[in-house]
Design a protein around this nucleic acid. Structure first.
Lengths: 228, 228
DNA sequence: GTCTTCATGTAAACGGCTATTACATTAAAG
DNA sequence: CTTTAATGTAATAGCCGTTTACATGAAGAC
C-alpha cells in the first residue's frame, strides 16, 4: 500500500497536477509555519516530488508566492463581487454582506491574505513578483468592487455633500483590512479584546455611515451590539 | 588601511555595542530586502563580526526579530503617548496629532512596523517569540494610548449614547493600522490612489467622529480635503 | 603587577534551503 | 513507430542558521 505515507503516491512518473498541488501545499504550509518559514523544498516533499520539480512550474520561490497572491486576489475579487451582488436587494444590506465576505476570506484563507497584503516592505529585492501581483488586474478588480459599493452608498447623498468616491472606498477598505490584518495574528493585542472581527467592522461601519449621512436615522441607537 | 572596507573596523576584539548595532542593521536590511530575505549572517557582516557572534546576544534569528518588534513597540507607545499628550490642548486636536504620529511611525520605521504587525500567520512555529512581542506590555501600552483617546472622545457624549470604549478604540486602531499597512507596501493598489495616508486617515476620522456625535457640527462640510 | 574569570568573538562544521545543470521518462504529435 | 517537448530526478554549488570548541581581552581578586 504505497498510499500510506502520502495521500497519493502518484502512479506515473509525471505528476499530472503539480502546479495546483504546489499552490495548495504552499497555502497549507504558510498557515502552519507562517509566511516566513515557508520552504519550496517542503512544499515539494508534501507534493511528493523532488526539490527541483517546482522549478518546472515556477521560475523561483517568489514566483510561486506571487501566484498564491494572484490567484488569491482572483478568488477574493470574485467573492466580494458575489457578496455585493450589485447592491441587491438594498445597498445597505449588500454592503453588510460585502464586509462579512471580506472578513470571511481573510479567515478562511489567511495564508493567501497574508501573502496578498502583508508581504515584504518597501522595494524589497526578490519580492518584486509578489508586489506585481498586489498591483495586478485581479487586485484592482477587488478594489473596484469596494469602489462600486462606495459609489452606491454615496449616491444616496445630495450631490454637494458627496466626498470623493476613492476616498470613501479607501475608508471602507482600510478599516476592513485593518480588522482582518489585526485579527489574523495569533498573538495580537486585538485577540485580547472580547470582540469578533465582524462586530468591530459592522459597528464601525454603522458609525461611519451615520457620519456620512447615509443611514436613515438609526432607530435603536444601540451603536455597539449590532443585531446578532 | 583596514577602515576602508567598513565604516568602523573596530579596534578591539570585542565590539562593545554589538547588540544595538545588530538591531539597527536588522531594521536597515528589512527595509532594503523585505521582512523575508533578512538574514542574520548579513546583519553580522554589516556589523563587521562573524556569523556566529549574534548568538551571544540573541538566542536565534527570531529572538532578534522579536527584539526589533519589542523595542519598536516601546518607541511606538512613547511616540503615541507624547502626541496624545493627555488630550491637551483639546481632545480633538490631540486626537489629530495622535493619528499623525501613528502614520509617521509607520513611515519612518517601516521595518519595525512590519515586524510588529505583519509577521507570520497563525501559530507559526518559529515566530512564537515575535508573537509574544506583539502581546508584550509595550504593545499593550501603545493600545492603551488609543484607548485613552477613545475614552476622552466618548466622554463628550451623553452617557446613554456611549458605545463601549474598547470598541471605539478598536475602530480607531484598525483604521489607522489599515492605512499604515496598505500604504507601506510599494506595489499596493493603495499607492495608485492620489491620496496621502494622512488625508485618508483624517477625513475618515472626521466622518467617523461625526457619526459618533462627537463633532460640534462640522462647519465647512468639506469632508474630503481636510485643511492642508 | 599578575592571575583568574567571564563575557564576548572566531573558526569550523552540519544540515537545510535555493537554484542550476545534465540526464531520465513519458505523453502527444506526426 | 519515431520524434519532440513537457515534466520529473540526481547531483551539485553556495548561502544561511545554528552549534561546538576555542580565542581574546576586560574587570576584579590577590
Amino acid at each position: 500500500m504505497k498510499t500510506s505515507g502520502r495521500r497519493w503516491h502518484r502512479r506515473s512518473y509525471h505528476h499530472g497536477n503539480l502546479k495546483e498541488v504546489l499552490l495548495e501545499a504552499a497555502r497549507t504550509l504558510i498557515e502552519q509555519h507562517g509566511a516566513f518559514g515557508f520552504s519550496l523544498a517542503e512544499a515539494a516533499r508534501l507534493a511528493g516530488v523532488s526539490p527541483a520539480a517546482p522549478y518546472r512550474h515556477f521560475r523561483d520561490r517568489d514566483a510561486l508566492l506571487a501566484e498564491v497572491a494572484r490567484s488569491g486576489f482572483e478568488r477574493f475579487a470574485a467573492r466580494l463581487d458575489a457578496a455585493w451582488n450589485n447592491g441587491i436587494p438594498t445597498p445597505l444590506s449588500a454592503f453588510e454582506a460585502l464586509g462579512r465576505a471580506y472578513l470571511a476570506f481573510a479567515r478562511e484563507e489567511p495564508a493567501s491574505y497574508a501573502v496578498m497584503f502583508e508581504t515584504g516592505v518597501s522595494e524589497a529585492q526578490g519580492t518584486e513578483a509578489i508586489q506585481a501581483a498586489a498591483a495586478s488586474p485581479a487586485a484592482e478588480k477587488a478594489f473596484n468592487v469596494l469602489q462600486q459599493a462606495a459609489a452606491a452608498l454615496c449616491r444616496q447623498l445630495p450631490e454637494n455633500e458627496r466626498p470623493p468616491l476613492k476616498l470613501v472606498a479607501m475608508h471602507i477598505w482600510t478599516m476592513s483590512h485593518g480588522i482582518a490584518s489585526l485579527f489574523i495574528q495569533e498573538g495580537s493585542v486585538a485577540r485580547k479584546v472580547p470582540l469578533s472581527p465582524e462586530e468591530v467592522l459592522e459597528s464601525g461601519m454603522l458609525i461611519y455611515l451615520k457620519g456620512l449621512g447615509v443611514l436613515p436615522e438609526v432607530p435603536g441607537e444601540e451603536t455597539a451590539s449590532g443585531e446578532s
